[in-house]
Amino acid sequence: MTSPQPKIRIDNVHKAFGKKKVLDGVSLTVSKGESLVIIGGSGTGKSVLLKCILGLMQPDRGAIQVDGEELTTLSTRERERVMHKFGMLFQGAALFDSLPVWQNVAFGLLQLGRMSRAQAKELAVEKLRSVGLKADVADLFPSELSGGMQKRVGLARAIAEKPEIIFFDEPTTGLDPIMADVINELIIDCAKDLGATTLSITHDMASARKIADRVAMLWEGRIIWEGPAADVFNSGNPYVDQFVHGRAHGPITDNAGR
C-alpha cells in the first residue's frame, strides 16, 4: 500500500432490520487527524452506522477496520481493548444519572483501577475545566445540569481517556445557537489538543461547516456524495443541494414515497 493507512476504513457495510435496509453498502475512509462529518436526514442510518463502528450493533455484512484491524470479528475482550481508542459523545449526553459529575468524567479511568479516587477526581476537575466548567460542578448530579452543561460533561467524559478517535452523535441537537457554537468550538479544540481523528453525524449544517474537514452525505443507506467541507454548498449534487439549503422540495422528498 502506497498511501498511508487510513485510521478508519468502512467497506461495503450492510445492515437491515427485518425487511428494512438501513445501511446498503456504505464505504468510507477517514485519515488520521481528519474530521469527517456525515450529514443526512433523520432515519437515514447515520446512528446505525456509528453504532456498527462502535460495536454496539453487528453489521450484517462488510468490513470495519481501525488502524488496519478488523473490528467485526473481535471477541468481547479484544473489543474492550480497542474501545480504549474511542471516545463518544452521545446525542443526549447519556451521563450516568446515579453518579456525580466527576465520577461520570472519570468513569473510564476509575474502571481501569490504575489511580486512586482522589487522583481521578483531580483529573476529572481538570477535564471539566478544559470544557469550560467550574470545579464546583464536579459534585453535582447530571440531573441538576442544563442541556448545554450536560453536553460539556459528556465531552469531558469522551476525552478523559485521551482517545485517538472521537465520535460525535448530533453534538448540537437541542442546544440554542450560541451554545451550539460553543460546543462546536470545544469539539475543534479538544480534537486539536489530542490530535484525534473525529467522526461526527449531524443534520445541523452550521455545525457541519464549522467542524468538518470533509463531508459525506448518507441517503437511503448509501454515501451519495463526499468531498471537502468547502465544496458542500456547491457540490453540484441535487440531493446534497436540497439538504444543505434545507428546501422542502427536491429530489430527496420527491423520491421519498418510493
Binding site: L54, G55, R81, M83, F90, G92, A94, D97, G108, Q111
Partner: peptide
C-alpha cells in the same frame, strides 16, 4: 437514554 451504550464505549 443510551447509558448502557455509553458503558460499552467506556470499556465497561
Amino acid at each position: 437514554t443510551e447509558q448502557i451504550d455509553a458503558l460499552v464505549t467506556l470499556s465497561t
